[in-house]
Amino acid sequence: MKTRDPSAWRCNVAAASASLGMAIGGIGFRVQLPNAAWQAALAPLYREFPLDRRPDWQVTISHDPDLALADQRWIAHDGPITRFCADGYTGWVDLEQRRALVRTASLDGGASAVERGVGYACMHTLLRERQSLMLHAAGILWRGQGLVVSGHSGAGKTTMARLALDCGEPVNDEVVIVDLSGPRPLLLSTPILGQSTPPELARRVRRVAPATALLLLAHAPDFALTPMEPSEAVMELLRTHIAAVERFSSAEIWMDMVERLIQSLPVYRLRFRPTPELWDFLADALGVPPRAAS
């Protein structure tokens, strides 16, 4: 005698298959998607970040074609739950239950919706459990250097990452992780892209390398690299990381982590103009050994 409805079984199989897994900075995510079409479109984007552990978080992406959120932008905290609305997405993140939901109007915004939910969860979990900082920064691997390149919107992160295409490897122009759990800081790439990441930098590649410097950018007519006072560096980072300190408990941990960051990594103000001579200047200023003759 059958005890279950076969059609219900097929439904369950279909529902279970519409998901993807990923791991970022050692945090595992199971992301439920609206249907198999979404999975087919999105899962390949994250193939370099496979879920190699039990998921720590469950993130649900909800498709709402009637969602109309133009120009709305807000965030609100209620205990462990954060609700948000920005750039056409809305949803919530529950830091205690480790669940998140992001609503988006179309599959076109699917990757961004995934990365919005995963990114916020990752930022807080990395702080609390991995002694790592998620930074609004570009990551550039160049001549043995792992450069963490931060600055406010428009400061030049994407410009510098684009300039690195010819002589190094930009691993991301928007979000990277600095792992501070070991004796030396590590730069970890993420698959999280920005709203304005240009196509040539829209690569979701997994890289891990020693972090060697934190550069805080400013456009200028000439090149200059100057060490920054720790407090100035922290204030500069806070300009773009205010979301990390909106909760008192997170603010405490964030400040501890940033203190560790600036103790273990040289921090510079880099004034630059967007020309390839940047790299010769940086090689001299940072004392990077010359390239081996090819």
Binding site: S231, V234, E259
Partner: peptide, 17 residues
């Protein structure tokens, strides 16, 4: 409900509320 740290000789003070 205020988080603060002293970096070098300057304090950075955050009031999340």
């Amino acid at each position: 409900n205020v988080a603060a740290r002293v970096y070098g000789s300057d304090a950075v003070v955050i009031s999340p509320d």
